[in-house]
Nucleic acid binder design. Structure first.
Ligand code: NAD
Ligand code: NAD
Lengths: 244, 244
DNA sequence: GCAACTTTGTGCACGCCTTCACAAGTGTCC
DNA sequence: GGACACTTGTGAAGGCGTGCACAAAGTTGC
């Protein structure tokens, strides 16, 4: 993915600093952006790494190191200018342009996503809604008409869509992703609980509800008296271990 | 209620192996579980680490090491017995019991979550739906009646709920989490784009849609000709860099 | 202009996670 | 019964991320 070192290619010009920002840092930039936006709304002009770190829920050293990958945007003895820093992070992430997004699968979740206001306010524009069910086509959702899957490639092309959101049943996820990629989409956010393969150069992220719940359950099981979680079989195993 | 060691220093009996499974491994167990379930449905009886790893989308050495934390459940020269391994992982995660879940905030997303069938099939039972809006109380969603926030504590107590899902607006997330925790919930899954603080001993995970999209946008910006993403300001900076 | 104070940016050490590579088992075939 | 083929389980190495601690750099007050 981070194949910036090609012999003939220039080292990614156009987006000035940007060289090799660690993935862990990239994942936190949206967090900082959100905290900064809240500060702007409260009318705060300057913020120290300590304050910003607290409101973003991270360690202040980590915050400073993260920001240092973008450049030296702070002033020693003072802190960071809120609005300026926000702009820099925004630019780094690529939120100065707006991204056209297609949502595939307009069921329960697809409806919620389409109606969600949090996209537009963050630089993402839902450009198309697509479903395979003819009964859904034509339906208006959040001011957009649901189109049939047959039109997927056409829409991606016409509307210059680079980002796809998949909210179909798990079974359909791989074929849908294949079509998205073939049509030119290079970033996919997948909500379906399926393992999807995509070619090199395509970014795939997944939001997996049941995985999250299962991780919680794992820890939960180890908290409030593990004895409560004893099944008959487990109790037998335990007894055997203790007696043997 | 911080660590598993309450008064007696017993090394957590009841859940046999379980000792210090790395967090990264825990996060992958649900993935393996899903792959195994798919194999069961296809009638496969035995699987090698190589095959299972491929279908789970991970490195086979990593898979074997992950499984080794649970115990030696494989047979050299053969592989893993699908159904047996699935049961072991299931038990490790704590899916042999079913967990009661409360969803707070029955708006767009809350409705989708409530109607989602993927909970029950994975050991989670939606036990209560709660909203602050009196207009929503009484409404039937997925066979459950939406209750008013006033009843939150009562419901958590009566239904022995340990897991809470927060789907309220960001502003309400912290107060709602505070109430959940005060009422005895020790695991929270938060969908609201807010930084929430919880006391030690409470697990908080977040699903953050806009963060995911922003991470995709970051990488997207660096792919297809960064030149396209040039703003006037950036072009000036670039020109300066090249000329100077 | 200087001293005291504040806060950034980063070198460094530590720990976790990933991956390779291989010895140690297990089943099969003759 | 023994050689062979296969697969697990794990030691060791390398890479990445985190957080401490501090020097460098800037501001304020006099
Ligand atoms: N509902 C939730 O809260 C929720 C939560 C987490 C994950 N998910 C996952 O998200 C996905 C969607 O969930 P849902 O509850 O909206 O399901 P749903 O059945 O309500 O909606 C699925 C939609 O996808 C459409 N579809 C099916 N095949 C398609 C194809 N090949 N191309 C285009 N559209 C197609 C269907 O017509 C339907 O409208 C599922 O994989 C589910 O597991 C849902
Ligand atoms: N809709 C989506 O697809 C989506 C996607 C990602 C994140 N989110 C986030 O999830 C949250 C919910 O989104 P939504 O689209 O469902 O919003 P929504 O406005 O449709 O629903 C919010 C619900 O929460 C209820 N509520 C408000 N305050 C409450 C309180 N103190 N206690 C209990 N209930 C309360 C409201 O009455 C309303 O029914 C938001 O924070 C949103 O940013 C939504």
């Amino acid at each position: 993915m981070t194949r910036t070192s090609s012999s003939t290619e220039t080292p990614t010009p156009g987006v000035p600093p940007a060289r090799g920002v660690p993935e862990a840092t990239v994942a936190r930039l949206p967090l900082y952006l959100r905290a900064l936006t809240a500060l702007v709304e409260r009318g705060v002009a300057t913020v120290s790494s300590e304050e910003l770190a607290t409101s973003a829920g991270v360690n202040s050293a980590k915050l400073r190191k993260d920001l240092s990958y973008l450049g030296s945007y702070g002033t020693r003895g003072v802190g960071y200018e809120v609005d300026f820093l926000r702009h820099q992070i925004s630019r780094e992430i690529g939120l100065t342009q707006d991204w056209a997004v297609v949502i595939v699968g307009i069921g329960n979740l697809g409806h919620a996503l389409a109606n969600y206001g949090g996209f537009a306010s963050r630089g993402f524009r839902i450009a198309a809604l697509v479903d395979a069910d003819p009964k859904r086509t034509g339906e208006k959702v959040a001011g957009l008409e649901v189109r049939h899957t047959d039109e997927l490639e056409q829409l991606i092309n016409d509307l210059d869509i680079h980002i796809g959101v998949v909210a179909t049943p798990a079974r359909a996820a791989q074929p849908v992703c294949d079509r998205l990629v073939a049509a030119g989409v290079t970033s996919i956010l997948n909500f379906a609980p399926a393992i999807v393969q995509v070619p090199e150069g395509v970014d795939l992220r997944k939001v997996d509800l049941s995985t999250e719940l299962q991780i919680l359950a794992y820890h939960e099981q180890r908290k409030n008296g593990a004895a409560l979680a004893l099944t008959a079989e487990q109790a037998a195993e335990l007894a055997e271990a203790v007696n043997g």
